[in-house]
């Protein structure tokens, strides 16, 4: 059972005037946003709109060039175990599946016995027990992403950032990952994720944050967004993608 109950909630996440540029090129500009505890937040937008960048800023992997990004109790920073991140391409250590989870648990300072217990619990929870001893790097792409998700789950994060987690997966792998996302959400973990798969966005989103050319174009409830988006860029984005 994922629990966000140890300690008070770090949400909402508040972005104020967030900007980010590289070599004079503005990639994100003046983003004001508050992400609260309810529902699953999907960040949508065309390629290059700044979706992945926004996630990395929120997770603290990058420092904003302008503005501030704060949880309820202070600025965000990478390595805070209360928020975790899963990447498009899973990055797993060159050791067994179980050892990957044990390593992550060691990093948050759990005692050894607790680590072993939680690793087994996690592997069992997501049906990865048979893979426990296998070297993580020889697992299939789908298995690797499930392991990366399980590793994040074992940390009991209050917030999980997902950056296009199924972009490289086949339909079965995608389904498995979506089921795991549901498991996180049921456990009370706030989901913030990017995707370019509109069907997936319709399945998962409770609310949508739409980015256009580095700016926040609109933020709407999911049903409303897919029915009649408020902003012009979102409308043409949905139109362009309609064959989906």
């Amino acid at each position: 059972m994922v629990s966000a109950a140890d300690g008070s909630s770090i949400l909402p996440l508040t972005l104020r005037g967030v900007g980010y540029g590289v070599a004079g090129r503005v990639l994100l500009d003046a983003v004001d946003l508050e992400i609260g505890p309810e529902g699953r937040t999907l960040i949508l937008g065309a390629n290059g709109a700044g979706k992945s960048l926004l996630l990395r800023l929120c997770h603290g992997l990058l420092q904003p060039g302008a503005g501030s990004i704060r949880w309820s109790d202070g600025p965000t920073r990478a390595g805070d175990p209360r928020h975790a991140m899963v990447f498009q391409r899973p990055i797993l250590l060159r050791r067994s599946a179980r050892a990957n989870i044990l390593h992550a648990l060691a990093m948050i300072g759990l005692p050894a016995a607790e680590r072993r217990y939680r690793a087994e619990e996690t592997l069992a929870r997501f049906g990865l027990g048979a893979l426990a001893e296998r070297p993580a790097r020889v697992l299939s792409g789908g298995e690797q992403q499930r392991l990366a998700m399980a590793r994040a789950w074992s940390l009991r994060p209050q917030v999980l950032f997902l950056d296009e987690p199924t972009a490289a997966l086949d339909p079965a792998g995608t389904r498995a990952v979506e089921e795991m996302i549901a498991a996180f959400a049921e456990g009370g973990t706030k989901i913030v994720m990017t995707t370019h798969d509109l069907a997936q966005a319709r399945r998962l989103a409770d609310e949508v944050v739409f980015l256009h050319q580095g700016r926040l174009a609109e933020r709407t409830g999911a049903a409303e967004f897919f029915d009649m988006p408020a902003s012009t860029p979102a409308r043409s984005f949905l139109k362009g993608e309609l064959p989906w």
Binding site: L61, G79, M85, I91, R95
Partner: peptide, 24 residues
């Protein structure tokens, strides 16, 4: 260069990352 984002995300950076990297 391969691990940096993931390890920093896990709170495994600086001196703490050295044993992990040497082992891998």
């Amino acid at each position: 260069s391969e691990y940096e984002e993931q390890l920093r995300s896990l709170g495994c950076s600086g001196a703490r990352a050295i044993p992990t990297l040497l082992w891998d």
